[in-house]
Design a protein around this nucleic acid. Structure first.
Lengths: 227, 227
DNA sequence: AATTGTTAGATTGGATCCAATCGACAGGCA
DNA sequence: TGCCTGTCGATTGGATCCAATCTAACAATT
């Protein structure tokens, strides 16, 4: 874990205002993209050394991640990256199955031609991409583009957060199915272009249903339901 | 603020495992029930003195509250209780308008007679209650009773969290309307008893719509949209 | 008089230190 | 042998300390 994490750290992107912010964002990315596997214990001392800060910003960052259900905290026993369970995955699909249609409904009437062409472009990129991590990001960006005009920042942020945690499952889905439903993506985009709300919502529901079913199948092929 | 907060602290309820847990739960309750008004600056030193702990557990608790969008953090300027804006309230209604029907749909088929009688009892309590803070809690418990059998812990927790933040608006709603829709509560419960999913979802949508409209009216009667 | 530069106090961010708790292992005892 | 218990190292929870930054008041200059 340490090498890869150190690599992420040095690959400087945006500048952060505080160490806590920086640690939180980096750890979050590492958990979501699988660099930090489920169940990994997060030793404060080790992380402090890796990030070259004291334990305090680490602790604050871990608390924030706890509130986002990305790490589990057990008093005096430390934090671990939360496991991926079939239960949690289904839970996530149920939440997104509620939030995304709402976001889409509110956003659809205000989508612009520019939004549509951005979405088009993302779909092309997905076709050419093979790296699962990057595909997850593109998938998320495609969906969020369609929800972006909902006009309600909290709803949008919440939806994005749950789409992001789905990245953790998406890699298994990809392993099982091989594609991520580009046909449905295109059908969804077409329905949005045509301002056909009913059609768009139906396609979105199908999209979610297929993904959930694929993930269930993946877990059924395994002995345990956690990982 | 200090007196009331101190009262909350001394009114010992459950025992907490760590000071951080305790501070977080107490601050959260104080923010949600209005003891800590929107915009209140949260000085770490003051809170530490009030809670009789050092600043560190305070900081960790504040970070968790930040992740729950209950306090705003500005680097080197401290934390303040987030403002209540019409925008945020509408955002909250949109989120609950997505989550609660989903929770109800999944829970309804598994509701037991005991659940129904618990819900009955809560409705009676609401009738006899006049304190706004306590009414908010009872309202939340009524709704959550109907969602409790959804079987998906994250969905339930997320729904409860957003119902809880609604307590912050509920007092204005109560001030404007005077009652909290007990007729609709009873209609909703009856529909659940009769396993009439369509009816229950329709009543729930009406319930939300009325509440949102009342809150908009309340804000329209004011010069600004924040508070 | 208004604006800008400066400085002191308050407050937070981060580091270091100490105390409390947990886990593992070794040894005593039935 | 199996179980209980006590001790020790590792690790976290919490306290204290120092550095960085912000705010506000005041002085100086135009």
């Amino acid at each position: 874990m340490t090498e890869t994490l150190a690599a992420i750290i040095s690959s400087s992107g945006p500048r952060y205002r505080t160490a806590t912010e920086y640690v939180e964002a980096t750890l979050k990315r590492a958990i979501l993209d699988g660099t930090l596997a489920p169940g990994t214990p997060l030793r404060q001392e080790d992380l402090a050394a890796t990030f070259k800060v004291s334990r305090m910003p680490i602790r604050e960052a871990l608390r924030q991640l706890e509130a986002q259900a990305l790490v589990d905290f057990e008093p005096h026993r430390g934090a671990v990256v939360v496991q991926i369970t079939l239960q949690d995955a289904m839970d996530n699909y149920a939440i997104r199955g509620a939030l995304e249609p709402q976001a889409l409904r509110l956003s659809m009437p205000h989508l612009t031609d520019e939004d549509f062409s951005i979405a088009d472009e993302i779909l092309s990129e997905i076709d050419q991409e093979s790296d699962p991590g990057r595909m997850g990001e593109l998938n998320r960006r495609f969906h969020m583009t369609l929800y972006a005009q909902a006009g309600l920042p909290r709803l949008i942020a919440l939806t994005e957060q749950h789409l992001a945690t789905a990245d953790r499952y998406l890699r298994f889905h990809l392993a099982a199915v091989g594609d991520m439903g580009q046909d449905e993506h295109r059908a969804l985009l077409a329905a949005c272009r045509g301002h056909d709300e009913a059609k768009a919502l139906a396609v979105l529901a199908t999209h979610h249903g297929r993904a959930a079913a694929a993930l269930q199948a993946f877990f059924r092929g395994r002995s345990d339901t956690s990982l």
